[in-house]
Design a protein around this nucleic acid. Structure first.
Lengths: 360, 360
DNA sequence: TTTCAAAATGTAACCGGTTACATTATAGAA
DNA sequence: TTCTATAATGTAACCGGTTACATTTTGAAA
């Protein structure tokens, strides 16, 4: 393994010059730079990233916390993150939490142990500890004015407690903290979908929501309720079923809903997988979709248009969430406060054939 | 940030003892260990992973190279890898290559730069032979003077020893090298499926294969042909269409196949997404599935059973591939040669409703 | 009590970069 | 030419672990 010292020997310069030639080429003269570059080539030198990470105290790695990678929506978000990271030379560590807070903590502690510089969390749980933000790792790259007290006399006085880890929340976000969020205006999107169903004449619209704890669920339900109210209707709580975003839970929810006092003529599922499960279950019970009952979803996953009938749903810019989240996190890592704390990306209602006029 | 020296001071022992108390507790006396543990707690000490990785020359990280994370089959494999890694304290770096060999090389060079200890590759390309690289490490800003890189395929790498990076190949594997592989017996699986179709009376079975370069495609086609031959039939090359594992390509393939001289009565797609695309296309053209034409897939992704009709397919142990691949790689990292170079995991034919007797 | 191998612990070098600070080279001004 | 500001380069400390080797302690046998 050739080291920077080998290169410096071959090039006939000091290690500092080699280092500078690589990281800040404008600080070395042309001829020196050329010599160094040649020496690098001659020795087949590759900088040791582990050593560099160690000295710079940065890993140029971020972790993505996701409850389930095999969810097609999340995997697209991850792809967006990954590509954005690749472009700027960052790598992404994958953390499949299976919803387990212990696993989340494990990954959060990786940041504390400096294995990663920041976290993008795809479903908002409790923020890790403090999150007070501000204050980044001293030792910036600003060449200027490093006062006399060179040695780090940092105030390690009190228990510094939870270092605030750079954190961005995407897709399903918690609010009220100062953690930046990137998400859909879930209420508006859901409202628009419900309005679509209302416009088709549906009055008894069932909902298969997500886990009740999630803010995403709350927001979507809020939008739905709002649309109902504006149409002079009220929310019928017997038409609300809870799902967990899996197709199986959509399937199960339908049996509950069909037993409700007032028969629904449409079912609004809070993601496409549950919608697919619901359609499957309906058809198995002999109901035509959308002839007897309309079904609509949320996300517009790749498979939505291959359903039978193709699924009416709400398209989310999945990759966009990822790239945007990465941009914001990158900014934070450079010490910038995000100019907008809560960002909303646009949705689009995709009307296909699973929704139709109410059956008379 | 508290360091190991802080802990040693508080505990009244040397740094070596602290280090040993953590990594090899049996080498330290009970009372000392207790003192150290208390000091660790008192100082709120967390070992600096970057420093540890640097000194031990290991990152306890592996990279997973996948052509497309949003493929539901791959994402399950990844989940398997990730969970297996979590159990042994490894992290996984995600590398979405988009099939781009340049991206693959970038990730391969991470191993050389010691950012990762090994690689699991989910689709077999050429083994990273060349490694000439010399490329930069992917710091975002190579302002100017890129004179060093760019020239690859220069003989020099031969002398620089083909660094063998610990590599495991899973799912779609290249053979003939000494890279361990974990996969299905694709030929047998495909053969079994074709036999299923033959048993339903189908004589004109079309195939929507994957990219022709892949060994997975070749093997499955081989199994298919074998079944045909054993039934006294020969492969009709006009009934072979090429796809790229996307639903859209399955959709497109169907139009080609329907124009073939001999009308197929069944279509065997080499993955479920293409099968879903094919079914979609067939139904749009007015064909009943399986009434007019049977369609079968491969993989048994989560959505296969929610298709209409539910898809007959071949179940692969996706998570199993992941965990097994991780086990093998782990073994290699510990210096063990894998006892079996080419492992085959079992498949299972899942017969649902998309395949039926041939139409008379 | 003495002896000595084994166990426990300490000392300090080392990994390979980065960078503060010191030193030397360069060039324009006086 | 001499002086001085600035650019270019060199020296060496430093990051925070691990571990080879040296030293001390322990405990059982002699």
């Amino acid at each position: 393994m050739t080291s920077i010292r080998d290169v410096s020997k071959v090039a006939g310069v000091s290690v500092a010059t080699v280092s500078r030639a690589m990281s800040r080429p404008e600080k070395v003269s042309d001829k020196t730079r050329k010599k160094v570059l040649e020496a690098i080539k001659a020795t087949n030198y590759r900088p040791d990233v582990l050593a560099r990470n160690f000295t710079t105290r940065k890993s140029r790695t971020i972790v993505v916390l996701v409850p389930d990678i095999s969810n097609p929506f999340f995997s697209r978000v991850i792809r967006g993150i990954e590509h954005a990271a690749q472009r700027v030379g960052y790598s992404v560590l994958l953390g499949d939490t299976r919803g387990d807070p212990a696993v989340e903590d494990t990954y959060a502690s990786m940041v504390e142990a400096r294995l990663a510089d920041g976290i993008i969390q795809l479903n908002g749980r409790l923020p890790f500890g403090d999150t007070s933000g501000g204050e980044d790792t001293g030792r910036g790259d600003d060449a200027g004015g490093d006062a006399a007290g060179s040695s780090d006399t940092f105030g390690r006085s009190a228990e510094s407690t939870k270092k605030s880890v750079p954190l961005v929340n995407a897709c399903d976000c918690v609010h009220g903290s100062n953690v930046p969020t990137i998400e859909l205006d879930n209420a508006s999107a859901a409202k628009a979908m419900t309005q679509h169903l209302l416009s088709l004449g549906h009055q008894h619209i069932a909902v298969v929501q997500g886990p009740v704890g999630s803010s995403l669920t709350k927001e979507r339900l809020r939008g739905h309720t709002e649309a109902l109210q504006e149409a002079g209707l009220t929310l019928d709580s017997t038409l609300i079923a809870e799902g967990d975003f899996s197709a199986a839970s959509g399937e199960a929810a339908v049996t509950t809903l069909l037993a409700a006092p007032s028969m629904p003529t449409a079912i609004f599922c809070f993601n496409d997988e549950m919608a697919m499960g619901a359609m499957h279950s309906l058809k198995k019970s002999g109901y035509a979709v959308p002839g007897d009952i309309s079904v609509v979803g949320f996300d517009d996953i790749q498979f939505a248009r291959y359903c039978d009938p193709p699924l009416t749903t709400i398209r989310q810019p999945a990759e966009g969430f990822g790239t945007r989240a990465m941009e914001v996190l990158l900014g934070m890592l450079e010490g910038k406060e995000p100019e907008v704390l809560n960002q909303y990306l646009p949705h689009e209602i995709i009307i296909r054939q699973s929704s139709g006029p109410v059956k008379k």
